[in-house]
Each structure stands twice: as structure tokens, then as C-alpha cells.
Design a protein around this nucleic acid. Structure first.
Lengths: 237, 237
DNA sequence: TATGCCATGTGGTTGGACCACATCAAGTAT
DNA sequence: ATACTTGATGTGGTCCAACCACATGGCATA
């Protein structure tokens, strides 16, 4: 069993077991690479390959030097694997943009419908709204705030998996849409419309109008991507 | 820019670019590790670290020897990063099981509601139904068929991202629920109920009763996990 | 013609060496 | 006594050279 496994996979399995059995907790440091190599009787190279994978999964984070930021420590960044893997798979053309948009639509409209108006993340959302209302924000800055607003909104439902996925989906095709959106013939008019829609969604959530909020956000997202030339996939019926 | 990047990240970027600009397509082979190392002026070690990451993402697959199965070739397995990363993050206890169940509920009920009754995957689903109806399938086998049935059902909506995520979510907590389910006091009765529910869902989909199918599958999943002791997270309101 | 063997090219693994970096303790100059 | 310098230490980052296991394909041989 152990002998037939690739060396780096053995290390991965070891780390997973250490985490699952609570010997490794978030914030704690892994043993030094050389130490792990000796303990598991594999080369340091294999240990490093495993750590690279864990790093890509958002499970650990490595830092050189000494002190608190050094060494390899356990973190929890569920968005890392989604964002990077999604971008790659999107690049292979085997993951249609329409599917991504449609999925984001589903996740975010659910999140908004189930948002808790008392959630602290809605305060962040409101602050972001005001930042976007500033008359002299440029298109790029607006785009950034826009993304953060949607993430904050989704977090109000309290499901970390759904809000994480939602954000990653947006990121995956962000570069794909950014240029198209900011170079629209009348960006100013578009920005005005987006501002109004954002306020409408936010107000509906705060008023507890779950169904309305959900419909507004769905229309908002669909309109956004339609303008960018990526309509959500037609649902089969 | 290039100089400040970690070596293996440079390789990752190179591969992503090759894929994005269509010089690397699915099914094609990457150059040999030693060749890439020479081309990009990095060590073979760094190339291998990058390939390990791509492998974990389901973007490439490596094989030794000669012939068609040898070398590192580009594949498209979007489920790989979800399944493995989800399992790890679940192990860190920073990804509540309730969130996972709730998300699966959302994805699958959507997929069933938007399923195309003419989809070929529904034929697979039907075959799986019949296999589960065999009186002498044991609990473990039933569980396996059950999982495949739900995946086949989800694929009928035609959104590869949603059906992939759905399957990975189930896998992530599969081990967690398997023991509990098969060791129920009266497994036989549970199996009978599950069979009936499966048929009900399938029939509703085939009849085009989208809304009904969606509600049936939601109740089915919720009941399943409730019996296993993992009720979906209460939605905030 | 049929069989066996080995050259070739692939990824898999290892050990060792060196570098860059950040800290901390010891030593030194003021 | 204080402030500064300096070096020891331990971390990940990188590279190299070698060897292994494996699967094929062509060559030599029976």
C-alpha cells in the first residue's frame, strides 16, 4: 500500500491525516521540510512537491527566513483551488463561459435570497456602495469595488462554500469581461445604471424582501454579462 | 517581473499561456520535463513542482515508459481539484458539513429542475435505477450506484460545472456518511424508501414536471443527510 | 519467420550542495 | 549602561547529477 504510492502522494496523505486527526491545526507550522523528509523516509524533493500541491489548494503557505512569517504553516483559503483551477480549465475551452455565468447566477441569487439583514458583512457592502457612488472613481476602481460588493453580499447568507465559489467564478472570467465592460461606448451611463441596481438589491435585502432581492440580483448579473457578450447558457428544457 | 517569480510559478504561467493561446490542446503531450527545463531556463525540479500542481488540478496526467500512455499530456478533469481540495478543507473544520450539504442541495435541485428529458445521461440514470432494484445488491454497492445515479441525473441539465461540483461535494463527505447509513437499524427499509424516491424523481423528470422533480430531489437529499446526522445548515433569515 | 534482448526515452526518486532571507544572540564600540 | 554591528542559526528556494523503473521498438539471433 504505502510502497506502491508515489512518494509525494504519501506526504499528501500524511498531512491530510495529521489535519483530520487534529494534530495539525490552522495557524500551526508544519515541521521543516528536511524533518518531514527524514520522518517519512522520502527525499526533500518529494516533500516539496506535496507542499506545492497543498499550497495550490490553499491549505498551507510557505515563507522563508525566521520568525512568525517563516516556515510552512496551515491556513484555510478555500478560494485558492477554485480560482486557479477554474481559470485553467476555462482556458482549455472545456468549461464554457456560459456555464460559469449560469452557475454564478444560481449561487448568488440563492445567497441573496437567504441573506440575513443583520449580518455584519452587509455593513461592508454598504460601505462599498458609498465608495462606488463617489463621482470620480475610474472604471477599474469601480470594477474592483463592484466585485467586493457582490462577495460581501453573498457572505450575508452565512454559507462560506457558496460565497467562496461565487467569488471564484467571477474571478475566473474577470479578465475576460473587464476590457469589454470598461470600453463600452458610454461607460458613464452603464455605471449609473449599475449603481442604481446595486442600491435596489441592497435595499431589498435590508427590507427582508428576499424574493425581490433574488430577482433583482439575477437580472443584474444577467444584464452585466449580456452586455459583455457572455449570456448565460440556455437552460435545457 | 519574471525574475521575482518563483521558478515553478513561471512554469505554471508558461503552461497556462500555451493552453490559452491554443498551442497546447487536450490530448496533446507536453514536451519532456528535461526539455521544458532547458527552454525556460529553470531546473527540472521546478518543472516537476509545476506539473504536480497541474496534476492536482486535473489539467495534466503523467505516465512513465514509452508509448501512448507515457509522457505528460493535457487532459480535462474539472472534478479533480474540487474533490481533493474540498476533502482537505473539510478536514480543517473550517468548512462545515452543513454548508456542503446545503450547497449540494442547491446545485442538484437546480440541475434536476432544468434537466432535459431527452438527454442521453438519463438513459444511464435509468440503467442505474434498475441495477439498484436488484434485490441482492449489498449496501456498499447500492451506495456506489446511488452516487452514480445522482451524477447522471445532474448531467441532464447540461451544465458541466454544476454537475461536477455536485459530484465532488458528495464525494467530499461520502466517507463521513457511508458508515452511518449502511449501519442503520433497518437498512433494508431505508433502501426500499430510497428506491421509491429515486423512481419518483426520475419519473417526474421524464414527464417534464420540473418543479415537482426539483422538490422531490430536495426532500430526498435532505432526508438522506438528516438520517446520517448532517442536516443542512439553517438558512439565515 | 519468430523470438529474445537491449538501446532509447520517458517520468520517479534521491542526496547533496548552495543561495537568499529573517531573526536572535553575542560581542563591540560608544 | 546603551546602542550598534556582526555572525550563527534555521528556514524555504533552487539547482545539479545521477540512478531507477518502465514501456516501447528495433536489432540480432535462433
Amino acid at each position: 500500500m504505502v510502497a506502491t504510492m508515489k512518494a509525494h502522494q504519501m506526504v499528501l496523505g500524511w498531512v491530510e491525516q495529521e489535519i483530520a486527526e487534529d494534530r495539525l491545526r490552522i495557524g500551526q507550522r508544519l515541521p521543516a521540510e528536511r524533518t518531514i523528509a527524514e520522518q517519512l523516509q522520502v527525499s526533500r524533493t518529494s516533500v516539496r512537491e506535496a507542499i506545492r500541491v497543498l499550497e495550490a489548494m490553499g491549505i498551507v503557505r510557505s515563507g522563508v527566513g525566521s520568525g512568525p512569517d517563516a516556515g510552512t504553516l496551515v491556513i484555510a483559503d478555500p478560494s485558492a483551488p477554485f480560482t486557479s483551477a477554474m481559470r485553467l480549465h476555462f482556458a482549455t475551452s472545456h468549461l464554457p463561459a456560459g456555464d460559469i455565468v449560469q452557475t454564478r447566477l444560481l449561487l448568488e441569487s440563492w445567497a441573496v435570497e437567504h441573506a440575513d439583514p443583520a449580518s455584519a458583512s452587509l455593513e461592508s457592502a454598504h460601505a462599498l456602495l458609498e465608495a462606488m457612488d463617489e463621482p470620480n472613481v475610474d472604471a477599474e476602481r469601480f470594477h474592483q469595488l463592484d466585485a467586493e460588493f457582490h462577495v460581501a453580499l453573498s457572505q450575508a447568507a452565512g454559507n462560506v462554500l457558496i460565497s467562496t465559489m461565487m467569488g471564484s467564478l467571477r474571478d475566473a472570467i474577470n479578465q475576460y469581461t473587464l476590457d469589454l465592460i470598461v470600453n463600452l461606448p458610454d461607460w458613464s451611463a452603464t455605471a449609473t445604471r449599475l449603481r442604481a441596481e446595486h442600491h435596489g438589491i441592497y435595499d431589498a435585502v435590508m427590507a427582508g424582501e428576499a424574493r425581490l432581492a433574488s430577482e433583482l440580483v439575477a437580472a443584474h448579473i444577467e444584464g452585466y454579462y449580456r452586455e459583455a457578450g457572455i449570456p448565460p447558457r440556455e437552460a435545457a428544457q
